[in-house]
Design a protein around this nucleic acid. Structure first.
Length: 725
DNA sequence: GCGATCAGGT
DNA sequence: CACACCTGATCGC
């Protein structure tokens, strides 16, 4: 939640996203988007009175925000005081003090923020320097570099201060799956369910807030099924949205709400009251969009997690991840940064420790001064299609500005690195200990003790990756995007253990072979309290906190995020089998019971009791999906991968492909999916050793592994041990 | 009766 | 986990 007070130091005459207290005296108001926590005081009598006595006071926002705002009768009194500014159109504004007549000119530019419809960032330029207020934002890596108006010529503008959305500015939120990944996961789940019969419906358990519209639009476009919502009058001038939502309850996708909608759902009733159609009862599943995140070293991401018989969670985030925030800020490289949000449990100091090294005010004393200017990466605007997506000349521009060029966009990366301020990595690292006040050793010790604790009690993936900025810099996580989704269909039948079920999928013998030592077990056994901090392969964390990454969570966990990371490991294995080097490219969607029957039906015929891994390859020819697809090299890369996989796996197991989809059968097994089972699989698949091997690397044999563990535990380096063969 | 605030819920 | 919101209780005007 925003704790931004409303004003920026440089231009105290304007108030942004706050309208109470001192802000009542502002000369101009700005609203970044229509979420309640950014509208505090906006309908208070005090402000209303002020408006009534003034002709000059205006509220500036995007056209879409204006529309959404004024749709609510509670804000109707603003009608003649709201000024919609076109996005990406610098506008001069005179800030006049009505009592003194004092005047100050300021130029403001609205930049798409990717948070919800109409959401923007405000770029202020004037006598006191250039200031960027981000509001809430979600921008993929590299997005800042594509914003022309953040640049002057080919370089980033000299920005004095950034007021930053730091909601996920904590290393534990290192990675959040991209919009495309999340969308695809949800799409495939909805597709698989709704295609069974017309009585199979999906309830999207969305919050009462703007921001899900692009999900509705995509599902509707891809599946040809409109989404039922309670209200749509706010979209009356946004045909791009309006077309895809409906108040007709006889549709298979619902996003309607009810005060007790969970109770409705439990009673097999949709929030709108629908429970059957033509006398036939509905089969309802719910999908709850929630934020899922992954620590730095857990790179494989599952965007869908099954949480019950017919309930799912789907990854969805309105805010940038830790790495996205750092990428954004380091590109802008302002003199100062001010966090708008304190992550829960976080302190201002902690956030500033992360952000300061990316700012000039902090760097100045440590390094030679470089102009912190990146190079504008120009791309044809049409290709970008983000802000353009909803643009129709005669209608409102619905600025989602979601990025469909992914984090991994090659167009960007090659030049991006060089566009950063040229500061040697080590130098940046050197600056850290002084700011954290901790030595490497101390950090290591903290990590190892905490880690040990983690093996027994720690149950959430609260990994602290404070120390891992290098990998953030070296772009090593930027290989993740692809066009591949993996859908795992687990057999619901009881019987064989999940272990055997999954060992077949994997190539990692550790999962099944009891003789092979496991690091966590080894560690526990030997009661080693300080062992790993010298191991180069596992950089130590800078802060106290769980270090789950070193250990599997063998004691069972039940939170969904955890289950996600477990699934991630499965993706790893699958990828290793299919093709090396694209380990982190997939989303894994767990589908069970009914869905599995359904897929059996459509793909394999009834009765097969097998786990199925489908590799869905989106092809470029899919109807009307291009606008939501990443463009550029990722596509061809994904094709390669898919082909590779197909040649290796489809070939031997047969395939049952539908248009644009190759299904790959990987395993034959029964498994009952009790929660307990999930835990067991979990515990068996989240070890760090399951991170995909370097190509050509070998899995160590058991004795060798034991030997390595010993050395590791004793604090010796194992790197020299490698054969020079 | 209204709004602000907090607790508790989804 | 967190978000963004809602409801209901309490307090002050």
């Amino acid at each position: 939640m925003s704790r931004f007070g409303g004003r920026v130091r440089e231009y105290p005459a304007v108030s942004i996203d706050r309208f109470d207290r001192d802000n009542l005296r502002a000369r101009a108001y700005f609203l970044s988007h229509c979420h309640k926590d950014h509208m505090k005081g906006l309908r208070a009598p005090a402000l209303k009175r002020r408006l009534e006595g003034s002709l000059k006071v205006k509220l500036y926002c995007s056209p879409v925000t204006k529309e959404l705002l004024l749709t609510s009768w509670k804000y109707k009194f603003w009608e003649h005081h709201v000024v919609a500014l076109e996005v990406e159109t610098p506008t001069q504004i005179s800030l006049v003090d009505e009592t003194s007549g004092e005047k100050e000119d300021i130029e403001v530019t609205l930049l798409p923020a990717g948070h919800c419809p109409g959401s923007v960032m405000f770029l202020f330029e004037g006598e006191n320097g250039t200031v960027l207020y981000t509001g809430d934002f979600r921008l993929a890596k590299g997005e800042a570099a594509r914003m022309e108006l953040l640049h002057s010529g080919t370089r980033v503008k000299d920005i004095q201060s950034v007021y930053l959305d730091t909601t996920f500015c904590d290393p534990k939120f290192y990675h959040i799956p991209s919009r495309e990944e999340c969308l695809k996961g949800i799409l495939e789940l909805v597709r698989s369910w709704t295609s069974l019969t017309r009585y199979h419906v999906v309830w999207l358990n969305c919050k009462a807030a703007y921001g899900y519209e692009y999900l509705f639009i995509n599902l509707s476009e891809e599946l040809g099924i409109k989404v039922h919502v309670n209200k749509l009058d706010m979209f009356r001038n946004m045909p791009e949205i309006l077309y895809h939502v409906t108040t007709d309850r006889r549709t298979q996708i619902h996003a309607c709400r009810h005060p007790r909608d969970d109770d409705c759902f439990r009673g097999n009733r949709l929030p709108c009251g629908m429970t059957c159609q033509n006398g036939t009862p509905l089969h309802i599943i719910s999908i709850k969009p929630s934020t899922m995140w992954f620590g730095e070293r857990i790179k494989k991401t599952n965007v869908i997690v099954r949480t019950g018989e017919s309930t799912y969670r789907a990854c969805f985030s309105f805010h940038s991840s830790y790495s996205e925030i750092k990428d954004f800020l380091s590109y802008i490289c302002p003199v100062n940064v001010y966090p708008n949000v304190l992550p829960v449990g976080g302190t201002e100091d902690k956030v500033m420790e992360i952000l300061k090294p990316l700012c000039r005010s902090y760097r100045r004393n440590l390094e030679p001064r470089y102009k912190p200017l990146g190079t504008l990466k120009r791309i044809h605007k049409r290709d970008l299609s983000d802000t353009e997506v909803y643009r129709q000349s005669e209608h409102l521009v619905v600025v989602f500005s979601y990025s469909f060029l992914t984090d991994e966009d090659d167009l960007f990366d090659s030049e991006f690195t060089s566009a950063r301020p040229k500061i040697p990595k080590q130098q940046r690292e050197e600056s850290k200990p002084s700011s954290t006040g901790k030595s490497e050793n101390a950090e290591g010790n903290i990590e190892s003790t905490e880690s040990h604790k983690a093996t027994t009690t720690y149950t959430s993936p609260n990994v602290d990756f404070m120390d891992c900025e290098e990998s953030n810099d070296d772009d090593d996580e930027e290989e993740e995007e692809s066009e591949i989704n993996i859908v795992q269909v687990l057999s619901p039948a009881p019987g064989a253990t999940s272990t055997s079920s999954f060992s077949g999928v994997t190539s990692d013998q550790q999962e099944t072979n009891a003789d092979v030592p496991r690091w966590d077990a080894f560690f526990k056994c030997n009661k080693l309290e300080e062992s790993s901090e010298n191991e180069d392969a596992f950089p130590s964390s800078a802060d106290a906190g769980g270090s789950q990454s070193l250990f599997s969570d063998s004691d069972g966990v039940s939170d969904s995020t955890h289950i996600s990371s477990q699934n991630s490991s499965q993706s790893t294995h699958i990828s290793e089998q299919g093709s090396q080097g694209w380990d982190s490219q997939m989303d894994t969607v767990l589908i069970t019971s009914q869905e599995r029957n359904a897929l059996d039906f459509s793909c394999f015929g009834k009765g097969g009791s097998r786990a199925v891994v489908s590799v869905l390859q989106e092809t470029g020819s899919q109807p009307d999906s291009s606008r939501w697809k990443p463009v550029g090299p990722t596509t061809s890369c994904a094709d390669d991968v898919a082909c590779d996989l197909k040649s290796k796996d489809c070939g031997k197991d047969g395939e049952a492909g539908t248009a644009g989809v190759q299904d790959v059968l990987v395993e034959v097994s029964n498994s009952s999916r009790t929660p307990d089972l999930e835990l067991r699989r979990d515990s068996q698949s989240s070890s760090d050793f399951e991170i995909p091997l370097t190509p050509d690397a070998e899995v160590p044999q058991p004795d060798k592994l034991r030997c390595l563990y010993k050395k590791l535990a004793a604090g010796e380096s194992i790197l020299r041990e490698k054969k020079v063969s």
